[in-house]
Simulated assay, not measured.
Amino acid sequence: MSLETVAEEIRTEAEERAEAIRQQAEERAEEIVADAEAEADEIVADAEAEVEQEIDQLREQELSSAKLEAKHERMSARREALDDVRDRVESRLTDLDAEKRRSLTDSLLADSLAEFDEDEQLAVHYAPGDEALVDDLVAERPNVTTAGEYDCLGGVVVESETSRVRVKNTFDSVLEDVWENELKQISDRLFDDR
């Protein structure tokens, strides 16, 4: 065998080996690229899932905030409507016809006087404009006198001159009691809550 043949075999063997190494390197490179692409796809999928989760959380927060704001607005509207109803009731109490005002004031006075002993000296305060009415109502009661105006819609405030006991039986106080006791029913009727 000649030197040239040996050299040719060595070169062929070296080329085959180089080709095998190159092919292995390409295969390894393709594996690395495939792994990198898979990892990149996984990163993208994770990022998309995270973004979707953040979007869902933001959507829930916005929805919750909107519901809370709507509830606040609804409560505010209800409060305004209830205030309007109360104002209208107070206006109607102020504008009662004389006969009805006399009847209610007499009833409130009688209830107030029942809280005291019969022989106690009592002073009756009245709403502005009701002086003549109350003077007339107390005229038949010997131990009761009028004592001046009291800032209220109507009714009376009766005080004992000896024991310093005071009974407040005004339209305002009766309305306040009824309002507090019946507010839920009033609200239910106005807003049809069930």
Rank of each mutant, 00 (worst) to 15 (best):
D83T: 07
P142C: 04
E120I: 05
A38Y: 11
A70H: 04
E90R: 12
Q121T: 12
Q23E: 09
I32H: 06
R86T: 10
L109P: 08
E39W: 04
L122F: 07
R101Y: 07
L113F: 01
Y126D: 05
F171P: 11
Y126L: 08
L133H: 10
D172M: 05
V85H: 11
V157I: 02
A34V: 10
S112M: 11
L175E: 05
L82M: 13
V158R: 03
Q185W: 14
D135G: 07
Q53W: 13
L175I: 04
G148S: 04
D35S: 10
E180L: 15
A114T: 05
A20I: 12
E30I: 00
E26T: 04
A29N: 06
E27R: 03
S163E: 14
E80A: 13
D192G: 01
I21A: 13
S91H: 04
A7Q: 12
S173I: 03
L68R: 09
A14G: 03
E118H: 06
E131Q: 15
V44W: 14
S65I: 01
R101V: 00
M1H: 13
K100N: 09
L82I: 09
S103L: 05
T162C: 05
E159A: 07
V134Y: 14
V178K: 13
A7F: 06
K184Y: 08
S64E: 10
V138P: 15
S65G: 12
V134G: 15
S187D: 15
E16G: 12
V33S: 03
Q24M: 08
R22W: 09
L109F: 04
Q24H: 13
S76A: 13
T146P: 09
F191M: 05
E161V: 03
E30C: 00
E27K: 05
D177Q: 12
E90W: 07
E50V: 12
D83F: 09
Q61E: 14
A25H: 05
E31P: 03
E62M: 11
E30K: 06
D188N: 13
S76Y: 09
T145I: 12
S64P: 03
V167R: 12
V165K: 14
Y126H: 14
R17L: 12
R92C: 03
Q185K: 15
A98N: 14
D192N: 09
A20G: 08
S64T: 03
S103T: 08
S187L: 01
A7T: 06
A139P: 14
V156D: 00
Y126V: 04
E62N: 10
E131R: 14
D188F: 06
S2E: 13
D41H: 08
S91D: 05
A110N: 09
N143Y: 07
E180D: 15
P142T: 08
L93D: 07
N181F: 11
P142M: 03
E31I: 06
G129W: 06
N169A: 00
E115D: 06
A38W: 10
L68C: 02
E115L: 02
Q57E: 15
L58H: 15
S76Q: 14
F171E: 03
R164L: 09
V167K: 07
I186A: 12
A47I: 11
P128V: 00
A36N: 11
S91L: 02
P142H: 11
D95A: 00
E9L: 10
K71F: 14
D56Y: 10
D111F: 03
A147F: 04
